[in-house]
Design a protein around this nucleic acid. Sequence first.
DNA 1: GAAAGATTGTTGTTGACGACAACAATTGAT
DNA 2: ATCAATTGTTGTCGTCAACAACAATCTTTC
Lengths: 174, 174
Amino acid sequence: MASKQKTSRKAAAAAIRRPRARAANDGAYAGDTGDDIGLDALVGHAGYAVRRFQLWIFQDFIKTLATVDIRPTQYSVMTVIGANPGLSQMAVAKRLGIERARLVHLLDSLEERDFVSRIPSATDRRSHALHLTTRGKTALAQFKRLAAEHERHVAEKIGKENRERLLQILACFT
Amino acid sequence: MASKQKTSRKAAAAAIRRPRARAANDGAYAGDTGDDIGLDALVGHAGYAVRRFQLWIFQDFIKTLATVDIRPTQYSVMTVIGANPGLSQMAVAKRLGIERARLVHLLDSLEERDFVSRIPSATDRRSHALHLTTRGKTALAQFKRLAAEHERHVAEKIGKENRERLLQILACFT
DNA sequence: GAAAGATTGTTGTTGACGACAACAATTGAT
DNA sequence: ATCAATTGTTGTCGTCAACAACAATCTTTC
């Protein structure tokens, strides 16, 4: 359809496009399968590689933990609370590098599912002491088993040694 | 404020929370600065490290290319088109791992700024042959210089050798 | 050559997520 | 006692991935 199917604001822009004056190899690549396309400067950019990897790894995490319906961020929150009971929301947010505004909704959903409880702090009436419920503790144990399975997928994908090398390189960010 | 400031749906949930029965070390961590908080199982998860790293690297990219107002995804699109003139939108989307629905808006903005032009394909009236405009070509050259500067920031952060090791490990995703 | 199915660009919606700005309650410092 | 800082919360905005639908067009099949 190209410019024909534009209906509203695109119609004007489409009219401007010169239908002539095409350069070099037009249509030559049009039927490409997606492979054998050069990335030029993109190869050699850490950000691009990391983005693609992060996409893959999150999709695998979500898929592996789909049965328990837990997303990576939720898992990280429960893990930190489980390892450090009584933390305030501010402390958790700072530690995980997420905003406290975002943590509010995360905890809302986790509290609705009875995994986490906000207990009024004894020393500071502004803050909550975060704890895992008994249900949350047993649930987290299962999450960790599934997460370990996901981690094995990663090792299969990039290699066992490469995975550990990666963790070592990026340790300064955790 | 804790449970006091809840107004609507949270008021009911707040009433349920037992203000007693707090376990272990309550308030002990409440004043933590954010450091010295154990991550437990989170350390050793590739996904967590990658997420933090990706966040850092994208922020640095955006900051480094703030003067030209180019985001990572826009840069990747222009780079691929520059290296492979005449590609269709489908081919670009497949190659970069972004959806063609998303690429539509990306190209809209790049076309508005006169960096990219959609030329009707000679062989397939459905598709567009994507090209950089002359303005887009000179602009991309500058973007690449700034991107190289960003890449130096990455090398400073994780080390020159580690960066290359990282690129090698994640090469299978690019 | 016509019908059926696949592809391409487009529009729209949904939800997760990061960033920011306000606000009330509370704490801490002066 | 007053003023600044902190904590949780609410809201908005923009980015992004994932889907679903659609019209135009190509390709395949009979």
